[in-house]
Design a protein around this nucleic acid. Sequence first.
DNA 1: CAGGATCCTTCGTGATACTG
DNA 2: CAGTATCACGAAGGATCCTG
Lengths: 111, 111
Amino acid sequence: MEKDLYGICPYVTAQKLLTGKWTLLIMYQLSLKKMRFNELQRALPSLTQATLTKQLRMMSDNGLIIRTVYDQIPPKVEYSLSELGERFQPVLNAIQEWGTEYIDFLKGKSS
Amino acid sequence: MEKDLYGICPYVTAQKLLTGKWTLLIMYQLSLKKMRFNELQRALPSLTQATLTKQLRMMSDNGLIIRTVYDQIPPKVEYSLSELGERFQPVLNAIQEWGTEYIDFLKGKSS
DNA sequence: CAGGATCCTTCGTGATACTG
DNA sequence: CAGTATCACGAAGGATCCTG
């Protein structure tokens, strides 16, 4: 089973963590700045509250992001990248670049 | 819908393409050398034929890899990275590095 | 504002059997 | 050797309603 390779093979491990359909997008948003729950929702309009909540919890459990709760009324919760999340930046950059190239490729195809 | 961003946002686009549970692994394998169907299967033991076939077809359709059929008996089919696939290398490298760091993080946690 | 709790559907993944 | 064809399942994702 590939599960055995989680925590062993870098690729299997990374894939597991990035599995979420939105993980990459959230990582990107948070790499720009720390954000509150509603800010994220506005940045990712096609994502429902429930899903966003689950994703954030997963990412928090995995140590990718940090959840900071300010004990006040109205409630305020901020999400930011953890140390590990920050180190993810190179991947983000590489993906952005490659994604852009891929989009160009798509355009060339359709025209 | 986020579908609208496919072909527009690099991250959405990349995430779609890397969605498959095995895409990253296959990309890595093929980045080492072109491989035949059975070679890939041996390299990824926990992956069934059916699934591998589907993944390869998807990746081929997406232009990530190239499928070369040698018309002979017994059949021989080789898979290799396309131009676009080659350009994916930086992402692969970044992921490998980050994945390794993450594994270290996991170890530190459990101990 | 930032969720929690449910319910439901879709899609990816896998098992198995068969083929040129 | 390199697939194709079916069937089935589980989990991720989403819709909706409710709360401190």
